[in-house]
């Protein structure tokens, strides 16, 4: 029997979603692909055991977060451009918001950024986020609070985005 039976289908079904999370974490298309490659290689190595235990997706997601945090500790991963485009040219407001948000995310600590992605992009609960990050629910709450506070300072023009998120994190 092929020891990777089902692996291709798993990747096929989930690689786009995983790449998007990796991109939000790293802020760079090439690094996002590198991160996912590195994680999927480990997942492929351990595939039969992961399937037996019924946890391929949970393992992949957790491994990606851990790998990202580990990389960020070792090297600088992102160089956000210094200047914002001026309003009223080729970019619409939404595009400018994306650029500002991307730059603000780049200035968060790895764990703060991870918690923002897990809680507000992947829509995971505090408990689920805590399991993936390997910390307590209380730590997730405080990391979320600090991350949102920092985003508010880094990107005050996006405060409308953070207002209802802060309600949820209280």
């Amino acid at each position: 029997m092929d020891r990777h039976e089902g692996f291709r289908e798993f990747v096929l079904a989930r690689q786009q979603a995983l790449t998007r999370s990796a991109y939000l974490l790293t802020g760079d298309a090439h690094l996002a692909e590198d991160l996912l490659q590195s994680v999927l290689l480990n997942v492929a190595d351990h595939w039969p055991r992961l399937v037996r235990r019924g946890i391929p997706e949970a393992y992949t997601r957790k491994a990606m977060i851990n790998q990202y945090i580990s990389w960020r500790r070792r090297k600088h991963m992102e160089s956000p451009s210094a200047d914002l485009p001026e309003h009223g040219h080729a970019h619409d407001d939404a595009a400018v918001d994306r650029i500002v948000l991307r730059q603000a995310l780049a200035k968060l600590t790895p764990r703060q950024r991870a918690v923002i992605v897990l809680r507000f992009y992947e829509d995971l609960s505090e408990r689920e986020s805590a399991e993936i990050l390997g910390c307590s629910v209380g730590t997730v709450k405080s990391q979320t609070h600090h991350a949102l506070g920092r985003l508010r300072i880094l990107a005050p023009e996006l405060s409308k985005l953070f207002a209802d998120a802060e309600e949820v994190s209280r």
Binding site: Q16, R98, L158
Partner: peptide
């Protein structure tokens, strides 16, 4: 907003 940002992620094929 995060979803919009994530939509810029590259298409990959890694299986």
């Amino acid at each position: 907003a995060l979803g919009e940002l994530a939509a810029d992620a590259p298409a990959v094929d890694l299986a």
